[in-house]
Design a protein around this nucleic acid. Structure first.
Length: 254
DNA sequence: ACGAGCGCCTGTCGGC
DNA sequence: TGCCGACAGGCGCTCG
């Protein structure tokens, strides 16, 4: 796969208005055309393309995907926006459910500043996590999904981390001891490391990734035995998101 | 401050 | 077969 680094953006097309959060498409095309991709980065679930004067942010949401392909390749019917790149390449933003978003920003911090800490940041210590937990009174599951609390966790990783930490998803954040917090801290890092190592999960018809789905301990294992105690895994709904846990290993708090 | 409900979207799957 | 609801790796909004 050819790299997009150092390529010049020579054009752009938009197929679904709402995919482009900001600015208008005429301004977007005018500003990006002629700029060179200098750096590719990530912050939380946002992907960053650094240009000379601007940053393009991508958020894939549920069904988004970014593809580097030959400029002459047939267009996937779910492509919502693409950039033409020098060297006859195309960067296509594919998104069946149209939840994904693209921003062009002079100051990416306008969007990124709201994000919580990166789980692998050296400053993100168990003590820091504990400080953040006790200043809120929220159920752990929705709190872990809150990108302003911690950046980067999604539904799979929240469930898997709570299972490894032996914490019920309903547990209120301010009740966690230092010991429980330390377990949660290392569990978050562990499940993210595993997911990265496995290159993510491949689920359904649209989610393209690695094979982490073969190593899920609770996610989408409703009714199957817990790997530790054989108790059937339970599925509940918290904050409109499906939540999977072992009722024996992760007992309901008092 | 927090949680519930809803909207945004397309597609698949299982049950009747 | 066809229809219909449930469900899906996310997040922003309103309301109480």
């Amino acid at each position: 796969m050819a790299s997009i680094l150092g390529r010049e953006i020579t054009g752009a097309q938009l197929f679904w208005e709402r995919t482009l959060a900001i600015p208008s498409f005429p301004e977007f095309r005018q500003r990006v055309t002629g700029q060179v991709v200098q750096k590719v980065g990530r912050r939380g679930k946002f992907l960053l393309l650094s240009l000379a004067n601007d940053t393009i942010l991508f958020h894939l949401r549920m069904s988004g995907d970014l593809l580097v392909e030959p400029g002459s390749a047939p267009l996937n019917p779910h492509v919502r926006l693409f950039l033409d790149l020098s060297g006859n390449l195309r960067l296509a933003f594919n998104d069946a459910r149209k939840f994904g978003r693209v921003w062009l920003l002079n100051e990416p911090e306008d969007v990124l500043a709201a994000l919580g800490p990166e789980p692998f940041d050296p400053g993100f210590t168990p003590e820091e996590l504990h400080r953040r937990l006790v200043t809120r009174r929220r159920q752990l599951k929705p709190l872990l999904l809150d990108q302003t609390f911690i950046a980067g966790l999604g539904n799979i990783y929240a469930d898997e981390a709570l299972y490894l930490a032996k914490l019920h998803p309903n547990t209120l954040s301010h009740t966690l001891s230092i010991e429980q917090t330390t377990r949660l801290w290392s569990s978050i890092r562990q499940v993210l490391s595993e997911g990265i190592q496995r290159q993510g999960a491949t689920i359904d018809w649209v989610y393209r990734g690695g094979d982490f789905q073969n190593y899920f301990r609770v996610y989408q294992r409703t009714g199957e035995p817990c790997l530790e105690c054989q108790t059937p895994i339970v599925r509940i709904v918290i904050g409109q998101r499906s939540t999977h846990f072992c009722p024996f290993c992760q007992p309901q708090p008092e």
